[in-house]
């Protein structure tokens, strides 16, 4: 392992983190703009042309806000919780490939940070960590609303993790590998979403629940629990939770695109690998649009119904889907 390679990794890591944090800022703007259009409003348009500087303004505002810590809060955990939430969200996308290889400055650079052979397992593991942040935030705030929010998040997580896992196993079975690069490459003939629409649907629903997005946004149901687990947070600590939520939105879209929508694959990508990131970007933007669209349209599902739905509908369906896929694969392959 030479020094240039380490440098390459460092540069790619920094680039990825910058893209994710920058992406977070612009997803908030994207969401506000799309919501505004759906709701016959205009949306932010004061800061910069078409409001493009709005996220910057929001960020500056949040940095200068006073950070309040409730008197009876557990101060260490209270401070640690947002960090615990945001870091898994940031490192999640390390295994998602952006493209194949490009030649830059006479050097072949792979367009992914890591191609580990247990990538899907890694995804499952890392996404689960961030729930600790939410549960601990709810508990350490010493606020009843926040506690309820944290509890809801935990219950929701347990109910949806399994279905999500089983939905992710299907592409693994189809590709015969856990590496996301292999999974994307094996979608060369046809995207998995066309072969496995049910798995994609389960993945999408479970992922929405996983990242607490509407209609599964119970942990932060504003009308019920004021702001749920982050009721007591202010300033940058609050911004970190916000950031985690939106980065997870991007990550979930990226993973979903890679697993089911052919990732960076698209017309002419074999001839011109630089197109890969562009295709991925377009797919992510479309998935994000659907997530926002759902938020604008659907009412919130009730907490107990969500659990019922998770255990009684999604989980058996996912299990059945895995079973059927397995049988078909053996029959076809064998």
């Amino acid at each position: 392992m030479d020094g240039a390679m380490i440098l390459e990794w460092v540069i790619k890591s920094i680039f990825l983190i910058l893209v994710m944090t920058g992406g977070f800022a612009y997803v908030t703007l994207y969401e506000r703009k799309v919501l505004a259009r759906i709701q016959v409003r205009i949306g932010p348009n004061r800061a910069g042309p078409f409001g493009v500087l709005q996220p910057v303004a929001d960020g500056i505002k949040l940095i200068f806000k006073e950070e309040l810590v409730p008197a009876k809060a557990d101060k260490l955990i209270f401070t640690l919780a947002p960090v615990l939430t945001v870091i898994p969200a940031l490192i999640i996308t390390a295994v998602v490939p952006w493209g194949t290889e490009v030649t830059l400055f006479g050097r072949t650079i792979k367009l992914y940070l890591a191609d580990i052979n247990i990538a899907v397992l890694y995804l499952m593991a890392v996404t689960s960590i961030s729930i600790y942040g939410i549960a601990l935030a709810g508990w350490s705030s010493n606020n009843k609303y926040a506690t309820l929010g944290g509890l809801r998040a935990t219950a929701q997580m347990i109910s949806y993790e399994l279905a999500l896992g089983f939905a992710m196993i299907v592409p693994v079975m189809m590709a015969g590998s856990m590496s996301l690069v292999d999974i994307v490459e094996s979608q060369k003939p046809v995207w998995f979403v066309f072969v496995q629409p049910l798995a994609f649907l389960i993945y999408f629903i479970a992922a929405l629940a996983e990242i607490n997005r509407s209609p599964f946004d119970m942990p932060e149901a504003e009308q019920e629990l004021t702001a749920g687990y982050h009721t007591e947070y202010s300033g940058m600590k609050f911004a970190l939770f916000f950031m985690a939520e939106y980065i997870k939105m991007i990550a979930i879209s990226m993973i979903g695109s890679s697993l089911f929508l052919g990732g960076y694959r698209g017309p002419f990508v074999d001839q011109l690998p630089a197109l890969g990131p562009l295709y991925l970007f377009i797919k992510v933007a479309i998935v994000l649009f659907v997530i926002i669209w759902i938020r604008a349209t659907l009412p919130r599902i009730r907490y107990d119904r969500l659990m019922q739905f998770g255990w009684k509908v999604l989980f058996p369906l996912a299990l059945l889907n895995v079973f059927v896929t397995g049988v078909v694969l053996i029959l076809v392959g064998g």
């Binding site: 709701q39 016959v40 946004d217 604008a296």
Partner: peptide
């Protein structure tokens, strides 16, 4: 009441 159960767009349509 739409807003209360999480259907947020309805509120703005009604306001219109």
């Amino acid at each position: 009441s739409g807003l209360d159960i999480g259907a947020m767009s309805l509120f703005l349509y009604c306001m219109r």
